[in-house]
């Protein structure tokens, strides 16, 4: 099977969907000729023209509002938010308008909008361009949240998002745009709410989102060297969340670590660990643990920035504590 980069996978998904449905269009900063600073969208404006690949002014609230309006009136916009950190600028448009319109209109209005943005630190982009804020939007009823972990997921999830009549926020990991994976040439989509068990194991479950899936896989390899069998699961979408797969795994292994690049406190890891606590309690031989980014603004200096994100070593260290039956104290 061919391998393509995540960047190319996203490009293909958009191109295919735009060919499939003429209501689909792209809007955002520097999306047209520039193809975004990450050069993902190169070639699209050439194929579909400036009416369907629209460069907006540098005003996130402005163009997000326009996107919501377009979606409410029959279009299917894919809004490109250049850095996930800018989501703060569009919270009202996203969480008060897009998320609630279908409900508040008694079902009369849909907002089939896709917000394409990114997350991920260690790019040396400092505190305001490195955040992973998916927990914020996952908290809002009415929004779906997808977290592709590779080129394969990126294409499949994006297509599903575009075809979904609900507002979907899809976060790509900005560090992964040049990473390749096997992607079929044939058309495929990945359903929401279905987790992917990437590696089967019996001793401990590692649940990772986005690039943390690779972190968990690396940790699993290290644990295997020490004789432990780790199961690695990629939930793919956190809203909706495939609880059943996660719980079943927890019941099987009796130990769970959730790894996510959002800050550890009040985030995705807490939510997933909490559900496991509720629904797999009697099967747990150890508390479900969380590993997130440190609760600090992401540093600019590389040495410090690298310390704040979850790494395979951190995961292994925590895993060994659980596997050895050590007494787990809250820090």
């Amino acid at each position: 099977m061919r391998e393509i980069t995540l960047s190319k996978a996203v490009n293909e998904a958009l191109a295919e969907e735009m060919r499939r449905d003429e209501r689909v269009f792209i809007m955002g900063e520097d999306v047209a000729e520039a193809g975004t600073p990450f050069k993902i969208l190169s070639g699209l404006v050439e194929e579909f023209g400036t009416e369907r690949v629209i460069d907006t002014p540098i005003s996130e609230p402005g163009f997000m509002g326009m996107g919501v309006g377009a979606a409410m009136t029959g279009m299917r916009p894919v809004v490109d938010l250049m850095f996930g950190d800018f989501i703060f600028l569009i919270m009202d448009q996203l969480c008060n308008q897009a998320a609630k319109t279908h409900y508040m209109s008694g079902g009369k209005l849909n907002v089939p909008l896709v917000l394409r943005t990114n997350l991920g630190a260690t790019r040396r982009s400092a505190a305001q361009h490195s955040q992973s804020l998916h927990a914020l939007v996952a908290h809002i009823p009415g929004l779906k949240v997808a977290l592709p972990s590779s080129a394969y997921e990126a294409k499949g999830l994006l297509k599903t998002a575009i075809r979904d009549d609900n507002p979907v926020v899809i976060f790509e990991d900005k560090l992964m745009y040049q990473d390749s994976a096997e992607v079929p040439e044939e058309e495929y989509t990945i359903p929401f709410g279905v987790a992917n068990v990437k590696r089967e194991g019996t001793d401990i479950t590692l649940i990772g989102t986005s690039s943390m899936v690779q972190v968990c896989e690396a940790a699993a390899e290290l644990l295997a060297e020490q004789g432990y069998s780790a199961e690695v699961i990629d939930p793919r979408t956190i809203v909706p969340l495939d609880e059943e797969t996660l719980i079943r795994s927890a019941q099987k292994t009796s130990r769970v670590i959730v790894v996510d690049e959002g800050h550890q406190s009040f985030g995705v890891t807490s939510e997933i660990a909490s559900r496991i606590n509720e629904k797999a309690f009697y099967y747990l031989d150890a508390p479900a643990m969380r590993i997130g980014a440190m609760d600090v603004p992401i540093p600019f200096t590389p040495a410090l920035e690298d310390l704040t994100v979850p790494t395979p070593d951190l995961v292994v260290k925590q895993a060994l504590k659980l596997l050895r039956g050590e007494m787990i104290d809250a820090a």
Binding site: F281, L284, D285, E326, M327
Partner: peptide, 21 residues
């Protein structure tokens, strides 16, 4: 071996939920 309390202060036996079940 384990640097672990043999009995918690309240006299409660410490055991994982799985073992209790």
């Amino acid at each position: 071996s384990n640097p672990v309390v043999s009995q918690s202060k309240s006299g409660r036996i410490l055991a994982s939920p799985k073992l209790r079940r």
